[in-house]
């Protein structure tokens, strides 16, 4: 299993009208790998991530999931893809009309056809795991940013995904809350979850990632082990970006 890639991206291109956001992206995600995608804003990191679970449809090129072209997926296969590939958003996107518990239960019940009791058990277990058991019956708007993002992670986990996509999960948080979210993510990585994380948290990337991808202008300009990337960046753009981040 370990030698078969989970996701392969081949010559991926994405345009919005005349704007080319992704020009040519290639990459491979192996099972159990944690990949952090870094780069200046506007470089197409989020768009790239959203092409992986087909929230955005690529303009050209391919995204292969277990060797199958995601663009040729039927509705059913697409649902399965999204079941297996969870996503956590920058702005949490919890459902404000549902309690925390119901946020976690909805998809398992509707998509996995789980019984209400099983879904509740699972949800409570996950809330415990992210340390928010006592918030089960409140509505999302009474949560702090850090709590909301931990709930969002638990919600994604409720579908038992094999892989998680994180779209700048800590960028909307107050600084004092970043730690609690990163801690949960780190735990997930240690448990062997496959993760693609778009982030500005260089410390996290350095500590947790197996590989760091540097993106700019619609290309992945450099892929490397974290230590190599941060200490001996090759591409001049990478050098420039990393020196700015470290000196700021």
């Amino acid at each position: 299993m370990q030698d078969k890639p989970l996701v392969e991206v081949k010559k991926l291109q994405k345009n919005y009208g005349d704007t080319e956001v992704l020009k040519e992206i290639d990459g491979t995600v192996m099972p159990g790998q944690v990949i952090c995608v870094i780069g200046p804003s506007g470089s197409g990191k989020s768009t790239f991530l959203r092409c992986l679970n087909m929230l955005e449809t690529p303009t050209a090129g391919q995204v292969l999931f277990e060797g199958k072209d995601t663009q040729k997926f039927s509705e059913e296969e697409l649902t399965t893809l999204r079941e297996r590939m969870g996503m956590v958003f920058q702005s949490f996107n919890l459902f404000p009309n549902l309690t925390v518990l119901d946020n976690l239960k909805l998809a398992p019940i509707r998509v996995k056809k789980m019984s209400d009791k099983d879904a509740e058990e699972k949800a409570m277990g996950l809330l415990k795991r992210v340390g928010l058991e006592e918030k089960a019956n409140v509505y999302p708007n009474s949560l702090s940013g850090g709590q909301a993002q931990r709930v969002a992670i638990a919600r994604a986990l409720a579908m038992d995904p094999e892989m998680l996509l994180f779209d700048e999960p800590t960028s909307a948080l107050d600084p004092e809350m970043v730690g609690e979210v990163l801690a949960v993510m780190k735990e997930l990585a240690e448990d062997g979850m496959t993760m693609v994380v778009v982030t500005h948290e260089m410390g996290f990337a350095r500590e947790v990632a197996n590989e760091v991808w540097f993106m700019a202008d619609g290309y992945i300009l450099e892929k490397n082990k974290p230590n190599e990337m941060f200490e001996h960046p090759q591409n001049p753009r990478t050098k420039d970006f990393i020196s700015k981040i470290i000196n700021s």
């Binding site: 929230l55 999204r82 079941e83 958003f89 996107n93 459902f95 509707r110 998509v111």
Partner: peptide, 14 residues
């Protein structure tokens, strides 16, 4: 918010 639809789709909801 559009994010609601995306979050829902990302969970596989129809």
């Amino acid at each position: 918010d559009k994010g609601q639809t995306e979050a829902s789709a990302s969970l596989g909801l129809a």
